[in-house]
Design a protein around this nucleic acid. Structure first.
Lengths: 253, 253
DNA sequence: GTGTTTATCGTCAGGCAGACGACTATGATC
DNA sequence: GATCATAGTCGTCTGCCTGACGATAAACAC
């Protein structure tokens, strides 16, 4: 590493951007905010903001997450908090031209959250909403009446795409899919998470055998529920296991 | 994202650090450089440097890789170049205290290279060398006569550890292990790569069946070699497949 | 009660991995 | 040149896991 001659390095702005995913109505959705100022004024974008001087990157991401959703992020290692979401670093985007005004390096983070009430529009965004990732990726989240179809701001389509791909692959070999579920959930609800994230249909019987047979994945709470209709289903909580071995298999691929 | 009021965001220095891995003498080794200036003067560190004003992050990483090793990085998508190495972004480290002098955010990259001649000490490093990752992680690469045992500089032990873990897991489900091999290699050489990276012994017969039976993983070149002693072995090149399905299975875990 | 929906248990066949035997082809050693 | 050591390659067998189902159970809507 070079010596820190102050004239030797250019100054960068560093931001965090968030890919916040959830499953609503059988669809994988992401949190999008509408930009209030140029550039890309009026366009949908991922939530994010500047990292503060004395703030760690993960702390900045957690702060933005709270500001936008009220969700409290928790480390994978620390005990799960109520209303908590999974948060992890995704990747860093630093193309010199990604922001037309100046050199900005954005450290994108991925958050997985259970289905939530409508988001609160936070900070500088005119509004915020959940939108299906397909819609966000193909035409920037068009969906409101009279709204112009336009891609996401900056390189946020790329970031979102990378985040979705990370989520899709990570639920294969980890228990992360439970992060999309409420604290107690049924096997069927977990299966619908997999189906929404992967966009495939899974056999309920084989899925049931697989998840209940994987040690540490699910622990029964004793209760049952009938909120999905049909025969009452057992309720489970996420077990201690974080890595699934052998993994869940995604059809096709 | 906030408006770009120039007083609203603090300036950061952005660097790239490299975890360059190779397999030498049946051991997974990483490239380490000795720091020439404080802080951590005289200690071993990962190669790296500042990102230039108009330089993409991946371009900065590729530039540092050439400066340190002479290796030419290639995209996973683009055709393989002679003497090329695999290069990918690893993670970004931005703890406010990770550098005692100022706020530095480092975008770490992971490079996988075939066994190379001795590295050239580049730029500001007094010297550079390959060292087994175990040694680097436990006592900072102590190994030369009379050298003091000391951890790697900055948070480079953490970065190296993350890079090694990435490599260990990625050769499970991708054909990346071939990046550690010369352009033509035998099944046995590829197996020794897996054994070195994972630190386990693999059954030669089952390994042979697995890799030759995975479509697109290996393509025979027709030639044979006897450089390892014993019966001559068929030579292969890396096939077009990048994802192994089903993956290689790491024993134990 | 009948039909619908969802949950859960079972069965069966095919595929793949681990364990390991057997044979082949080279160089090294006596 | 016979023997040995080393490494490569092909087969066999067994057990586990998965995918494709059938069948039963327990709720709700009419």
């Amino acid at each position: 590493m070079s010596p820190y001659d102050p004239s030797a390095f250019p100054p960068f702005a560093v931001t965090v951007d968030l890919v916040v995913l959830t499953v609503r109505r059988h669809a994988l959705c992401a949190l999008a905010v509408r930009r209030g100022e140029p550039p890309f004024q009026g366009r949908w974008a991922l939530p994010g903001g500047f990292v503060k001087v004395d703030e760690d990157l993960s702390a900045a991401a957690a702060r933005e997450l709270v500001e936008e959703t009220g969700l409290c992020a928790h480390d994978p290692d620390s005990p799960v908090q109520a209303n908590g979401a999974h948060l992890e670093q995704l990747a860093t985007y630093g193309d010199p031209k990604r922001d037309p005004r100046m050199r900005v390096v954005s450290v994108a983070h991925l958050a997985l959250a259970p289905d939530l009430p409508a988001p609160r529009a936070g900070g500088d965004a005119n509004s915020a909403r959940w939108a299906p990732v397909d819609a966000l990726l193909t035409h920037g989240g068009y969906g409101r009446e009279g709204e112009q179809a336009a891609p996401l701001a900056f390189d946020h389509a790329q970031i979102l795409s990378d985040g979705v791909e990370r989520a899709r692959s990570k639920i294969e070999y980890s228990s992360l899919a439970t992060a999309f579920c409420p604290p107690e959930f049924t096997v069927g609800e977990l299966r619908r998470v997999y189906e929404a994230v992967w966009g495939v249909a899974l056999d309920p019987r084989n899925f049931h055998r697989k998840v209940t047979g994987t040690p540490g994945f699910l622990v029964p709470t004793g209760g049952t529920t009938t909120r999905q209709g049909g025969r009452p289903a057992q309720l489970f909580r996420a077990g201690g296991a974080t890595l699934l071995n052998p993994p869940m298999l995604r059809p096709d691929v």
